[in-house]
Design a protein around this nucleic acid. Sequence first.
DNA 1: GTTAACTCATGACAATTGTCATCTTAGATT
DNA 2: AATCTAAGATGACAATTGTCATGAGTTAAC
Lengths: 205, 205
Amino acid sequence: MQKINILIAEDQTMLLDALATILELEDNFHVVKRCTNGKHALTYLKAADAERVDIVLTDIEMPDVTGLELAQHIFDSKLSAKTIILTTFARSGYLRRAMDAGVKGYLLKDSPSDDLIKAIVKVHAGGTAIAPELMVESWMEKDPLSDKERAALRLAKDGLSTEQISDKLFLSPGTVRNYLSSAASKLNAKNRIEAARIAHQNGWL
Amino acid sequence: MQKINILIAEDQTMLLDALATILELEDNFHVVKRCTNGKHALTYLKAADAERVDIVLTDIEMPDVTGLELAQHIFDSKLSAKTIILTTFARSGYLRRAMDAGVKGYLLKDSPSDDLIKAIVKVHAGGTAIAPELMVESWMEKDPLSDKERAALRLAKDGLSTEQISDKLFLSPGTVRNYLSSAASKLNAKNRIEAARIAHQNGWL
DNA sequence: GTTAACTCATGACAATTGTCATCTTAGATT
DNA sequence: AATCTAAGATGACAATTGTCATGAGTTAAC
């Protein structure tokens, strides 16, 4: 019998180990590779035997290369591996970007481990598996922010002043304030911090 | 042979399930109870057979009752159960509070699952197990914030304005600004947001 | 019963941030 | 060449935030 070959990318080693163990307990699954960050996974998939991987199970928020970037690469390289995202965050922006990157499964770490096993089987068989929590309120408006607004918000979130932000983005302080102001108005926030929070919660940063 | 009885409290169901499974694979461990939040664990431990629990394995950041509050309760009630914290964050403030609550083990989710198994054995035998990453830079200064400063920072972190904060804390806006100002100065931050970020990173919020 | 310490408030002023209309410049478009 | 457009800059003003000195009331200590 041909087992389903799985690559796992997850930066929490404890979860990585535990998942690998429980997946190996299923007698038609085989974990061929464990990676603690997206870059390792990318390197592995670029190597010759990448075609042996059926399922890539990946977290989103990881150092160096995120799970979304990893999924995009698999999609662009036309690899046969199918990607399943496993993440903490029910952010519609993440889901949207995942769908655009050809992701076949999107599960939350809040879901029971049985769901993961079912999802792997289903996706391997050619189906899709999206956590029901996400389907509900998912198709909200898409990210209204421009690239510059996003970049400025990202820095403002950490408490950088207008001037520090302007230095990093090579813009004048006035322009930075304009961008932050328009971002806040687009998001119905009353200051840059609330705007950054909203954008972050929606997966736009 | 008497098995080591374990209660797990962890709000990520996926990790909870996976951990329970791999711990059950050890033939001298038995998972007697799984909880997805601290409150359930607390309720269970207040019941009659709580003495049957040898090890409480708990996350920190959980809804309703945090792992630190849970540990404190076990400590105060003089239960025989020994607490092991399993958390994402290497924040010295957390470790300090954990030690004060009589916690015997403190591991990071970045550690391999083998470390967890070793830690459970060690703690059950009367020892302690602290993640080495934490021992290094752990004994930095302790939380310099007052209760009010902390409360104000917590709200400021989400982008609430001075006035909104003053409403929630039943203080005058001026007083709120004073508290935020002194908090920022204690933390060498140049505004409330940077101060909130620093405090959060240290586990003081 | 005075003193000290603590919490909260106030007022004044500086600095930063938010808002908006207007301008410049460099590409595109026609 | 004349026009349009988008990115960025500027200036003016309001609103909010940061800083600090000072004061009022309460409680605990001596």
